[in-house]
């Protein structure tokens, strides 16, 4: 199945986000070999050059490493993966907070509601 991509944002940035997500969530494990550009392009139904551009971006941030002969691998630096995970979480929380403020909640009310809901969730 093709990946769900928004139509109004650059495709490669969405692929970068998706691959980051798959790495921090452990879908691709530290040190694991990634599928080839063409395989992933085909799975996502995107242009191979776009997939390549996303890979280049992830290589620049050193989240994935290229070994010239054997392919691309997820970094084994677990601290770095953790750091990316935290950054992504912070972004999501910021979006959440902005939306809640848009609904008229203040900081304390948000925390109270969140605790209440989490309790309900764990029962």
């Amino acid at each position: 199945m093709a990946w769900n991509l928004d139509s109004d944002r650059p495709i490669y940035t969405q692929i970068v986000e998706k691959l980051q997500m798959q790495i921090v969530s452990g879908f691709y494990k530290p040190g694991e070999k990634l599928p080839s550009v063409r395989e992933l392009a085909c799975a996502a139904c995107v242009n191979p050059n776009t997939m390549q551009k996303a890979f280049t971006e992830l290589e620049r941030s050193e989240l994935i490493l290229t070994q010239r002969t054997s392919g691309r691998f997820v970094t084994e630096d677990i601290d770095m993966i953790k750091q990316v995970q935290t950054t992504l979480a912070e972004e999501q929380i910021k979006i959440f907070m902005d939306k809640m403020r848009g609904l008229g909640f203040n900081r304390e009310e948000i925390v109270t509601l969140l605790e209440l809901l989490i309790k309900g969730d764990s029962k």
């Binding site: 139509s7 109004d8 650059p10 495709i11 242009n47």
Partner: peptide, 15 residues
């Protein structure tokens, strides 16, 4: 390029 349209116009090629 498709990406230039999306970056500069903030919309899909279709729109």
């Amino acid at each position: 390029t498709v990406e230039d349209i999306r970056e500069q116009q903030g919309k899909s090629v279709d729109s």
